[in-house]
């Protein structure tokens, strides 16, 4: 599988040790996010300091979250910056707000291509995480539309 995947893989540049539980989670097809024991809330992306209350690292734990949320906003990419995405274009690059409150970037998939091209996706569409094992090492989290409730 590894040799076939031409698109960019995650490059953990901030701190690979801090974001590791996130990627270990996706490998198990689970969505994990950091939770701050000081102010009792989730946040994303992974950090060494809580961005809400500056609690230090030892007050931050990882929790499995529901994997459900809504499309906060999105763009349909007709002209990708990275050539490897060209054959898939147009596709949806979205900002998802998970039910636990944090926001995360991902693609919304499982939509008929003609609807993608016609920008039919609605803001606030309910979505659920799905996991794509793109290489032996990496599993990306993507999102598919689901019904309300």
């Amino acid at each position: 599988m590894t040799s076939e995947y031409k698109k960019p893989l995650p490059r953990p540049a901030m701190n690979p040790e801090v974001s590791k539980p996130f990627w270990e989670g996706t490998k198990k097809h689970e969505l994990w996010m950091q939770y701050c024991l000081n102010h009792n809330g989730h946040f994303f992306y992974p950090r060494e300091v809580c961005p809400i209350c500056w609690a230090p690292q030892d007050r931050l734990v990882w929790q499995k979250v529901s994997g459900k949320g809504r499309v906060f906003s999105y763009t349909t990419v007709f002209q990708p910056a990275i050539p490897a995405f060209a054959e898939e274009a147009p596709y949806i690059h979205a900002l998802i707000e998970v039910d636990e409150g944090a926001r995360i970037i991902g693609n919304v998939i499982d939509i008929p291509q003609e609807d993608v091209a016609a920008n039919k996706l609605e803001v606030n569409q309910r979505v659920e995480a799905v996991f794509e094992d793109v290489t032996d090492e990496w599993t990306l989290v993507k999102w598919k539309p689901i019904g309300e409730g």
Binding site: P10, R11, A13, M14, P80, H93, I105, N107, K142
Partner: peptide
């Protein structure tokens, strides 16, 4: 490094 290379680029930014 910012979060972009890890959490955005893999999903095909414009």
């Amino acid at each position: 490094g910012g979060p972009g290379g890890e959490f955005e680029m893999p999903y095909g930014t414009a």
